[in-house]
Simulated assay, not measured.
Amino acid sequence: MRINMQIKQTPSGAIAYCDATLETISTQWFTYDYWLNLSAITGSSKGRYTTWFVKPDISATDESEWVLRHYYRGGLMEKLSKDSYLFTGLKNTRAVAELSLLELLYSEGFAVPKPIAANVERNGLYYRADIIIERVDGAQDLVAQLSKSPMSDTQWQQLGACIAKFHQRGVYHADLNAKNILITPDKFYLIDFDRGEIRNPNPKWQGANLERLLRSFRKELAKLPSLAFTESNWQSLMKGYSQA
């Protein structure tokens, strides 16, 4: 059953959220200072920019955490505007589009983070955006995993089968790389579906998706020669993919 996404208008734009119990949500929830004042910042992940981990209920006894991510441009467009995008409708914004895709996949049982909320703030013809998802408990990305220890052939095949399941559903991941795959003790997850979409399954884009992933493994291996990745590992992944 689909999660029922709710839309809440704000003075500067709108918030989309996937749980009716979050009706008190405000734009403050999408700021670092809000969580800092609650002493709820639990960590961060640093790439080109920082993604924050927060504990939504500091009085709760469980370990659930959220991931707060702001949308930034990359490539040549970054030189023109670091985080501003042309507004062509709420559903077309990167944040709401990603939240909607995650909502669909999560409801269908795919291994993706649970979607929480997205924030869109308009300024004339342009907007800035943020997203909150649930942090996958006990997970680390594949680069972190392979920098410490290798995966078994069975795990590589399981990863291939996981990717195949997404492809068979028509899920296009715009940035399928080793850091956007998480591993837990029992399964793999795909994360960061910015610019992702549902497409008609087609060997051309599916093959390009896999080639992008292979390039990312080779790139990480060039940076860290001790990374536990070999071409044989890739063949095991492809075996799992083709047999899924």
Rank of each mutant, 00 (worst) to 15 (best):
L221G: 00
L76D: 00
G124Q: 03
L105H: 04
W234Y: 15
Y189P: 01
W234H: 02
A117W: 01
V171A: 10
F166S: 08
S152H: 07
L105D: 02
S59L: 05
I133R: 09
A60G: 07
L214K: 15
V136E: 06
E65K: 14
D141Y: 05
V112E: 06
K219G: 09
G207L: 09
W66L: 13
L214N: 08
W205Y: 08
S226N: 10
D186M: 01
T93Q: 07
F188V: 02
D62Q: 02
A20M: 04
F30T: 07
R94H: 15
T21R: 12
Y189R: 06
F87W: 08
M151I: 08
H70A: 13
K223H: 11
S107L: 11
A174W: 04
Q28S: 14
L90Y: 15
S232A: 15
P56Q: 06
L105E: 07
N92K: 15
G75R: 12
L22G: 07
K46A: 12
E108D: 14
A20V: 10
L221N: 01
L182N: 03
L210N: 05
T21A: 12
T24C: 02
D130L: 03
I25T: 03
R135M: 05
G109V: 05
S232H: 14
K239M: 05
D33P: 01
G207I: 09
D19K: 03
L36T: 12
F188M: 06
V120Q: 08
S226F: 00
L176M: 10
I7A: 06
F110C: 09
L213N: 08
R169W: 11
L214I: 00
K8V: 05
Y127S: 04
P225I: 12
T31P: 01
R218T: 08
N233Y: 02
G74Q: 11
Q243C: 11
